[in-house]
């Protein structure tokens, strides 16, 4: 019955002291946020660690959440910023070196895809997404997995809508170019 409540209603309940209701929020967002972090951090262990940190951070900041934006937008902003901090701390790349809008994307499949196995193509594409630069992977995940609009994504990533669209198109084009280069289209259609 509680699961039918809106995010805002659950948060109000948590704010009133029903701490255990927060697990409903965790249930709602954990897997999608985990998928997102997994593709950004490229490491399942790091992704789970960061996700845990994000839920703790969100809980501690619940008092500052006034419901002006959707909870999902607010929460994914925490996820995105925490992931960036994690990436910076690991010194994989600095913020400036990270995928800018103009970054050239080079893809190399981790395994050979057999065109006969059509059902595995989604998994194959998912593998290619994992190879995209962090921000591009983030945009694709928010757009396709979380079914968010470019406007919402721009709010989360604190960038313009046109930048989000450019990143979305470039990511799709990179994947398209890869399958064209490997002659996978005709076999799959």
């Amino acid at each position: 019955m509680m699961k039918q409540l809106t995010d805002w209603e659950i948060i109000e309940s948590v704010k009133k002291g029903n701490q255990s209701d927060y697990s409903i929020i965790i249930d709602r967002y954990k897997n999608k946020a985990y998928s997102l972090l997994n593709r950004m951090l490229k490491n399942p262990q790091d992704a789970e660690e960061v996700l845990q940190d994000c839920f703790v951070k969100a809980y501690n900041s619940l008092s500052s959440f006034k419901g002006e934006a959707k909870f999902s937008t607010w929460f994914y902003r925490i996820v995105y910023n925490t992931a960036l901090t994690k990436l910076a701390s690991k010194k994989r790349k600095t913020e400036n070196q990270m995928s800018s809008v103009d970054e050239h994307i080079n893809l190399e499949s981790a395994y050979d895809f057999k065109a006969s196995e059509k059902k595995d193509f989604a998994e194959f594409v998912s593998g290619l997404v994992n190879q995209l630069p962090e921000k591009n992977a983030m945009v694709l995940n928010l757009f396709y997995l979380n079914e968010m609009s470019c406007e919402e994504i721009s709010e989360i990533m604190n960038t313009s809508v046109s930048n989000v669209k450019v990143m979305l198109h470039r990511s799709r084009n990179a994947l398209k170019d890869y399958i064209l280069k490997n002659n996978l289209v005709e076999e799959l259609l």
Binding site: Q19, S20, Y22, S23, I26, D27, K30, N31, K32, Y34, S35, N38, P44, E48, L51, Q52, F55, V56, F121, A122, E123, F124, V125, S126, V129, L140, F143, Y144, L145, R172, L175, K176, I179, V185, L188, L189
Partner: peptide, 23 residues
């Protein structure tokens, strides 16, 4: 084809007991 398969991407799942750990 890419667009359709991106829409069909599977969601990864966190390890069991994740909720309990956070709580």
């Amino acid at each position: 084809l890419i667009h359709e398969n991106l829409s069909a991407m599977e969601i990864d799942e966190v390890s069991p007991g994740f909720n309990e750990k956070v709580m």
